[in-house]
């Protein structure tokens, strides 16, 4: 294809590749788990890639981010390297947290990732505190950083969600609450967790802007996130961005994608009609050849990252005690 005919620029192409990076990262984790190499549990974000790419890449390196148990994609897109992510998930010393945190606790402070979380909802208060530290005692004159916190639809039922929106709004903090509404909290559909259609409607009760969007439409996610981030940067206060999306795997590696609480038809519908990668391929107008090439490139990146992780050593038992206290 001649360059002049392209419907996209290099940034868009990179976004597309990044969605593949997340998908293949998550697929590889499932594979490593099934091979008995990867310990612990896994919450994959397969199917939700447009949210991570669309939001995290609008952030600067010095912006702050908190994520939840389904946060591999967010952390990768905030700047973390796949190889050190894999090393963490495999419990190696070369991992971001020396192998002491694992999948649910990856932090990468150099890139502003102040942590993932194994407790549903608990990243929100931490994010309010981090956002408070950005404006504390006149500090806003020297920085225009923002903070983003990711959580699921299930977390919107937690008291902290409401307490935190209340405080963030009252203190006009530079904080964006991002609710990844994948329609289920474990096996419970959102309809059984609350009486409203759109979680972002909750924002109104706290005098905050709330926006609900199709979280699988990458351009829409990017555009909305960019606007809300800019607003927070300029002192416009916090907002709640709800991205409707869908996870393809089971809740964790312990359950099947469908059968108990979701039907195969429902999962197939999202995979064929709503998939963020397929949709973006069309936006970009990529050829089959180009797609094949990109997938191959991504496989190579993942394989090299896994190799690094596999070849790394674990922290020794004598050394672990030094991480209890600072």
């Amino acid at each position: 294809m001649c360059a002049a005919n392209k419907k996209y620029d290099e940034k868009m192409l990179k976004d597309y590749k990044d969605m593949w990076l997340i998908r293949k990262f998550e697929d590889k984790i499932y594979q490593l788990y099934s091979e008995g190499v990867l310990p612990g549990t896994i919450h994959a974000s397969t199917g939700q890639e447009a949210v991570a790419v669309g939001i995290c890449k609008q952030l600067r390196k010095d912006d702050l981010m908190f994520t939840n148990h389904r946060g591999h994609g967010h952390t990768l897109m905030k700047g973390a390297e796949a190889k050190r992510m894999f090393a963490e998930l495999l419990g190696k010393e070369t991992g971001y947290c020396k192998g002491l945190g694992g999948s649910m606790h990856v932090a990468d402070t150099e890139n502003g990732v102040l942590g993932a979380n194994g407790v549903v909802g608990s990243g929100m208060p931490l994010a309010v505190g981090a956002a408070l530290s950005l404006v504390y005692n006149g500090r806003r004159e020297d920085n225009d950083k923002v903070c983003v916190v990711f959580f699921g639809d299930g977390a919107s039922g937690a008291g902290v969600f409401h307490e935190c929106m209340n405080m963030a709004s009252n203190w006009n903090l530079p904080l964006i609450f991002v609710c990844e509404n994948n329609l289920y909290g474990m096996s419970t559909p959102i309809k059984e967790q609350g009486s409203i259609e759109n979680i972002a409607d909750r924002a109104a009760g706290y005098n905050m802007e709330g926006v609900t969007i199709d979280g699988n439409d990458l351009e829409l996610v990017k555009e909305t996130a960019a606007r809300l981030i800019q607003k927070a940067r300029e002192g416009g206060g916090p907002s709640l961005l709800e991205c409707k999306t869908y996870r393809y795997n089971g809740h964790s590696r312990g359950d099947k994608p469908y059968g108990i609480y979701r039907t195969k038809e429902e999962v197939d519908y999202w995979k064929t009609e709503k998939d963020p990668i397929l949709r973006y391929e069309k936006v970009l107008g990529l050829s089959d050849e180009e797609i094949k090439e990109i997938k191959k490139e991504t496989d190579a990146i993942i394989d090299e990252a896994v190799k690094f992780a596999m070849e790394s050593d674990a922290l020794s038992p004598e050394d672990v005690l030094q991480y209890v206290f600072a």
Binding site: L114, S122, G129, S133, G159, M167
Partner: peptide
């Protein structure tokens, strides 16, 4: 001063500490 939301306030204090305060 904060709202009467002890759980979240404990997290706010912790989050501020994580970022250097």
């Amino acid at each position: 001063d904060t709202p009467i939301a002890e759980l979240s306030v404990a997290g706010v204090a912790t989050g501020a500490a994580l970022n250097g305060l």
